[in-house]
Every structure is written in C-alpha cells, then in structure tokens.
Amino acid sequence: MKLSDYARQAGVSYKTAWRWWKAGVLTGYQLPSGTIVIDSQPEQTRPLNREVCQASDSTAARLAGFETKLEALQASLHQAAIERSHLLAELEAAKRDRAELLTLVQQLLRDLQSLNFPAPARWPSEVGMDYTHLEMLLADGKWREADEYTWLLLLAITQQETAGCLGLEDVAGFPQTDLQTIDRLWVDFSGGLFGLSIQLEIFASVEYAYPEFCDRVGWRVRQKWLYYDELNFSLNAPAGHLPVCVWRKRSCYGVGFVSAADSAIAFANRLLNN
C-alpha cells in the first residue's frame, strides 16, 4: 500500500504518516521512483497510544531542527565562499597594482639616472680636487697629519709635486675656490682657531710685518724661530698657528727660492683676491 493510501485510510495527513514511517512506526520500503510502500494495514499499524504519536512527532521535530541547522550552516558556508572569492579577487588586484607601481618606480629611477645630475660638492674645487681625506683628518683632530696633507694638496693643485715648493707665481695663480675651501675646512673644524683667513687677520693687524706675525701665531718664541717639529699641533696652540703654508723646515727660511715673508704676502694677496 502506498503511503498516501495508508494516510487516507488511517485518517491522518500524509505528512504525519511520513513522519511515522521515518520514525520506524510503520514498516515498508521505498521504491527507486521515491514512492513509499507500507506493509501494515492502517488498523494494524496505527499508533495505539498518545505516547507513541508524541514520540514520533518529537523525533520528526528534531529531524526538522537538524535540517534547519544544516540549511543555515550550508548558507553560512556559501556566504563564506563568496566572501573568500571577493578577498582573493582583491588580493589579485592588489598584486597587480603593486607590480605596476614597482614598474613605475623602476622607470622613474632609470629616468633620473639618465638625467645624470652632478652630485653636489660638499667642498667645492675648481680643479676637481677631493677634500674628503683632509676633512677626515681635521674631524679626527689629527692636526699635524692635516697640516702635512694640506701642503701636499697645495703642491698637487699647482702641479709642483716634483719641485716640492711653491713659487710666487704658483700662489698668485692658485684657484681661488680651492684656497677658500682649504681655509674653510681649517676654520670650521678648529672652531675658528686655525685657518688661512685667521692668519690674514693677524698679519694685517701687525701691518704685514712677518717677524711680529710669527710672534703672534707662535712661530717665533722669545726671538727664536721655531722648527716644524717644535710646533704645537693641538687646540692649545695660539690662533693662526696652523696651517703652515709659507715655510716647512723653519719659520724663518721659507721654501725653495721664496722667503717665508714673501710667501706670506703672496698668500695674503691671493686671499684678498688681488
């Protein structure tokens, strides 16, 4: 007997009969087509008491609750899948944007390099001289090494390394920018104690009298002209004590065929741009 026929004969709804069958109250089988066939007759299989009916209804209610929860879970999983798909799409878009931005930055760097801007010189030079080493020596307070290196710079700039001395024409033609750079390095790192411009001020104050100038800067002490090794290579030295550009062995000798006094006048004139 079909379940629908059983429900009609038993005087119950098809839904109630279906719940009884699902709860095992009714015996039967289900055809491949989906039709449910009941073995029992209505009068034989109909629940005999209220407890059995209530039990079947309770079981059916639980099943319906499980189905509702399952449907809610499936809906949540479906929504999560949709959100995951959106997030993956946004991630792919972000990757594309990042790749495009990286490409633009690389192109910008190549464009900037192609412009070939010259690096600004911290210490300018008319002849391309690099003053980094002198800067390092002065910054470290290595005053003697800095003075000896300054002398080598003067020879290199005037191309007098072989001769080892400067003529008056070398000083007169010395690049003005480089002379100012050397002076500024000494002045800056000594806190205004040393430098060619400091020496010029002192030289002018004694009306360019070389002996009196040497007394003031500490190159002559109690009428004694100092040798190079006797100089004070520290910040305790008198103002203008360094650098030594007009003599090398002794303060009264000068260098080469030029006296120290004449060299001092030549440097003073060059600093004054004369």
Rank of each mutant, 00 (worst) to 15 (best):
142 K>E: 13
162 T>F: 12
251 S>N: 00
88 L>P: 05
191 G>E: 12
126 E>P: 04
50 R>Y: 14
74 Q>V: 07
46 R>K: 11
66 F>A: 10
128 G>S: 06
262 D>A: 09
199 Q>D: 03
46 R>N: 11
107 Q>G: 09
111 D>M: 09
121 A>N: 06
41 Q>S: 14
67 E>P: 03
273 N>Q: 15
5 D>M: 10
262 D>R: 02
111 D>L: 11
75 A>R: 12
112 L>C: 11
32 P>A: 15
5 D>I: 09
231 L>C: 06
40 S>F: 05
187 V>G: 06
191 G>W: 10
249 K>G: 07
60 A>G: 12
245 C>T: 13
247 W>E: 01
196 L>K: 05
118 P>K: 02
162 T>Y: 14
139 A>T: 08
84 R>L: 14
207 E>Y: 09
43 E>N: 07
36 I>G: 03
121 A>L: 15
65 G>A: 14
179 L>T: 00
16 T>L: 15
65 G>I: 05
236 N>W: 06
180 Q>R: 13
137 L>N: 00
79 Q>I: 05
223 Q>F: 12
181 T>P: 02
216 R>C: 05
13 S>A: 11
42 P>T: 04
99 A>K: 12
164 G>L: 07
97 D>R: 11
85 S>V: 04
205 S>C: 11
28 G>K: 02
234 S>W: 03
12 V>K: 10
163 A>S: 13
103 T>F: 10
149 Y>W: 07
10 A>K: 02
99 A>R: 10
101 L>K: 12
166 L>E: 00
98 R>K: 13
56 S>W: 05
200 L>E: 02
203 F>W: 04
129 M>H: 12
235 L>S: 05
266 A>E: 00
130 D>Y: 11
265 I>K: 08
34 G>P: 02
195 G>K: 04
165 C>W: 08
34 G>C: 09
54 Q>T: 09
1 M>G: 09
259 S>Q: 03
156 A>D: 09
201 E>Y: 07
16 T>W: 06
115 L>N: 06
232 N>L: 12
109 L>C: 14
76 S>K: 13
215 D>P: 02
101 L>T: 08
159 Q>I: 05
117 F>I: 07
263 S>C: 05
54 Q>L: 15
243 P>D: 08
71 E>Q: 13
111 D>C: 10
87 L>P: 04
10 A>R: 00
265 I>Y: 00
144 R>S: 08
35 T>V: 15
137 L>R: 03
70 L>E: 12
89 A>H: 09
21 W>I: 01
79 Q>K: 12
237 A>W: 04
221 V>P: 06
196 L>I: 06
259 S>W: 01
46 R>T: 14
245 C>P: 01
148 E>L: 14
51 E>P: 06
33 S>F: 10
116 N>L: 10
218 G>I: 01
207 E>C: 08
257 F>Q: 14
15 K>V: 11
39 D>T: 13
72 A>G: 07
245 C>K: 00
230 E>W: 08
221 V>Y: 13
133 H>Y: 14
